[in-house]
Design a protein around this nucleic acid. Structure first.
Length: 314
RNA sequence: GGACGGGUGGGUGAGUGGUUAAAACCAGCAGACUGUAAAUCUGCCGCUCCUUGCGGGCUACGGAGGUUCGAAUCCUCCCCCGUCCA
């Protein structure tokens, strides 16, 4: 598909698995191209959870403004739709300053929500969800699937009978709009206007990524991850808060409760991170229009190649 | 030296004569995913052949023999691991 709008402002999105060096590449490019960094990450929007979410430190930011980080309190809930609103606003700020927006994308769904938009569907309803979850508990597995089948057979056929979160969202949309979710989706999305996305993909060799993840987990622990955990508790943040469910925080919490040794926790974190990286790649591989680079973002060879490519695109 | 317990597919670990290539879980691989997405879910997961089929062949439950129509499962000997007694 050709971009015809000459007025569209370039928007750079760096996709890639966790620990592939997106943040450092983003800063490096920003320094050279007059850019600012925007996080497209469902975890970095939470304040206080810094080490485990791999937020770039002040040092690593090197004076480059970073957006869409530290926006919410831990007891708040971010969703793809909310992220889109926040991101569009941040984008406009960056554009007003005449700077190049560079997204570091860990959360594929959020990038899609931003660029392609979401269906015109209502936001989640906690009350409705509570009721559905309650009935599901009483009526057993696959009850939700039966409900959805009645509301929208097409949608039910596309969602696994045990995939509760997706079933709930589908039922929620049907009930809230009074229309089958299939119809709501068919109505289309509202893509981002006025920008020309340039997608860069980092795809380091798997074995090297695996090692990098292991090293990073150890480094995070050395940087005081456990102390951060304690300060979060001291701050009075409920252990039920969303961010405590993020990779690493949950394992470390289990360790603090005496359920596993620190070594075991570290091993579990590495494993969960690896699996996460794999899922990210599954998502990104089918992302369209990505220019892929087979290495880490902090590898000089990669960064210079990326810069050259970007310059040809701007 | 002796007495028990145990050695099962990458790991943990079921299975104690036959629908058992061998449960389950984990790891691994592939995939799905339009509002909790660092979430959730699905498939595959010994080797091999083809006419890709609830298809064929081969290999497999420490090793070697044996019993049996048939063994991971029973017997014999051997090897290794753990605990205990000397």
């Amino acid at each position: 598909m050709k971009e015809t709008s000459g007025r569209a402002a370039p928007l750079v999105a760096i996709v890639g698995p966790t620990a592939s060096g997106k943040s450092s590449l983003a800063v490096w490019l920003a320094e050279r191209l007059g850019g600012e960094v925007l996080a497209c990450d469902s975890t970095q929007v939470y304040r206080y959870f810094d080490i485990g979410t791999a937020k770039p430190t002040a040092d690593e930011r090197r004076g480059i403004p970073h957006h869409l980080i530290d926006l919410l309190e831990p007891d708040e809930l971010i969703t793809a739709g909310e992220y889109r609103r926040l991101a569009v606003a941040a984008l406009e700020d960056v554009r007003r300053c005449g700077r190049l927006p560079i997204f570091t994308v860990g959360t594929g769904l959020y990038l899609r929500a931003l660029l392609e938009g979401l269906a015109d569907a209502p936001a989640r309803s906690e009350e409705l969800r509570a009721r559905l979850a309650e009935s599901a508990r009483e009526r057993g597995a696959e009850y939700l699937h039966r409900i959805l089948a009645r509301l929208d057979a097409t949608a039910a056929a596309r969602i696994a009978p045990r995939d509760d979160p997706k079933l709930i969202r589908a039922i929620e949309i049907c009930l809230l709009t009074g229309k089958p979710i299939t119809e709501v989706h068919r109505a289309g999305r509202a893509p981002l206007e006025g920008y020309r996305p340039i997608k860069l993909g980092l795809n380091p060799p798997r074995e090297e990524l695996r090692e990098r993840i292991a090293r990073r987990v150890r480094a995070m622990l050395e940087q005081g991850w456990l102390a951060e955990l304690d300060s979060l508790a001291a701050r009075g943040i409920s252990s039920a808060a969303r961010p405590f469910g993020f990779i690493g925080y949950r394992e470390l919490a289990a360790h603090r409760e005496g359920k596993m040794t620190l070594d075991e926790a570290a091993a579990a974190i590495e494993m969960a991170t690896r699996r996460y990286a794999k899922r990210q790649m599954t998502w990104f591989r089918k992302e369209r229009g990505v220019e892929w680079f087979a290495g880490f973002g902090d590898d000089p060879l990669i960064s210079t190649t990326v810069l050259r490519f970007l310059e040809s695109q701007l």
